[in-house]
Design a protein around this nucleic acid. Structure first.
Lengths: 142, 142
DNA sequence: AGCACTTTTTAGAATAATTCTAATTATTGA
DNA sequence: TCAATAATTAGAATTATTCTAAAAAGTGCT
């Protein structure tokens, strides 16, 4: 790969706050920036298209690799709607996703402060929850 | 297809309570029975394997068709865990799913009676919810 | 800087769940 | 019984994602 940008691999805090233990390569930083830029839950393919604008040599496999690395280090969340392509979301606060069937838009749905999941759900005895996904599909009345 | 079983296509209430507007074929009824028999959230492939025991000529495409028909008519729910194969669930009460990472088991998690989703989530103004999916991943402490 | 070592990136091939296609079979209702 | 519609089937096609193996980049030591 031609690397003509004279840039250290440690990234400005603004771009990506050096995710714990994750080496910040130019590609990972670009992928992360794409997600931060418009926070609209793009698919890997969409991230690829956007990343190519700044970094024409990036490959789709790398985008997948970067997304996986970012997800595993907790810098980004992976969101699944039924059988569609995974989407990626840089919002790390606990939240669900509302999929507007009319506009196609995906809207972050924050958990109410202080709300306990166990108020809503009859969880199994002793359950330790590592991951929670709440997805909603519907419409918005005008 | 060889059809050597002399059986009307209308199904016993016990097998499948004539889902509104859905013609109950032998295959759909078999697929539904598989789901009712062990309620363990099988994948389409697993449903296929089980259905073949009683109906060796059934095809995988038909299993997919039947599952889709049953889902669309609300007789069965489709459950997705991340990128895994879809799973199918005949429990029609509102509930989520807990995926035990140790045993691999999937456990239905009932919504508490009277609990409102809007107590937990900051829903968008005017949201009409057609579909809600709550999935949890974790472990169970002994 | 030079060198050995590890990690990442890359293009393209492979995989696997699901959907599609077109032909056959079953079902319905006149 | 016949025509019309719907469902089933085998196998091909699709598509998101993962894998592979080679090249490139990064790291750390002297």
């Amino acid at each position: 790969m031609k690397n003509n940008i004279n840039e250290p691999s440690g990234i400005q805090a603004d771009d990506c706050p050096s995710v714990d233990g994750l080496r910040m390569t130019r590609q990972r930083s670009e992928v992360y920036k794409v997600l931060m830029d418009h926070r609209d839950h793009p698919t890997a393919g969409e991230v690829f298209e956007r990343a190519k604008e700044n970094m024409p040599t990036i490959s789709l496999a790398t985008v997948y690799n970067c997304l996986e690395a970012l997800v595993q280090h907790g810098a980004v969340r992976q969101v699944n709607f039924e059988r569609e392509s995974s989407r990626y979301c840089p919002n790390l606060t606990e939240h669900g996703h509302f999929h507007d069937e009319e506009s196609g838009e995906i809207i972050d749905v924050p958990l109410k402060k202080g709300a306990m999941l166990s108020d809503l759900l009859e969880l199994p005895e002793g359950a330790q929850i590592d991951n929670l996904e709440i997805t909603l599909r519907g419409t918005i009345a005008e």
